[in-house]
Structure formats: C-alpha cells, structure tokens
Amino acid sequence: MSSIEVNGKSYETDEEGYLVNLGEWNEDVGNYLAQTENVAMTDQHWEVINFLRDYYNEFQIAPAVRVLTKAIGKKLGPDKGTSQYLYDLFPYGPAKQACKIAGLPKPTGCV
C-alpha cells in the first residue's frame, strides 16, 4: 500500500495512486491528485469531478466513459457531453484521470 501526504495528513492509495478510502477525499486531496496527473484544475474540471462524486454517491460505482459522457451531456449540456470535451480536460482519459482526482475507484469495465 502506498500513501500521499496533503496538508500534513497521510492518505492511503493503491498501487496505481487511487485513493483507498473515498470518504477521506476533500478538494485539497483532489488538487494534489490532479498535480500528480499534470492536470491544471479549472471550473470545467471541477464540474466533472463533482458530477462523478455525485454519480458515485447515487449508484456506488464509477461510470464507464460512455455512460459518463451521456450523463454529462444530459446534466451539463450537450456541448459537454462529448468524449472530445472530456478528453480535452483529462487527456489520459476521464476514467483514469477524473476518477482518480475525484477519489473514486477505477471504473468497472474501464476499457
């Protein structure tokens, strides 16, 4: 098990850097994880992160990319519900990067 340190507090992560206890997540941890992914967070980024956290709270899974794209389009507008938009924000993939920054586990069926 590895860990990261944010504001003097230690957080457990798995070998790929995903937070182990999602209940420990806060915005500072999100910012720290974003830095490790070389993602400069903007309001657009946070919008997706918050959406992911809400989705997880409701359904207890991290959505597959296709599902995320569709759901974002429904919630935040069709211009944002495209994989282009999400990959512009998270170049290594919304599943890999956005879920990690949001403190969620890796999506099931992540392909």
Binding site: F59, Q60, I61, P63, A64, V67, K70
Partner: peptide, 14 residues
C-alpha cells in the same frame, strides 16, 4: 459489506 444495490439503478444508464 458494500451495499451494491444502488448500482442496479445505474443499469438504465448503461
């Protein structure tokens, strides 16, 4: 245990 019952409600989105 993890309560995975809410996930059945996500199936529609899949």
């Amino acid at each position: 245990n993890k309560n995975f019952s809410p996930t059945y409600r996500a199936l529609d989105g899949y």
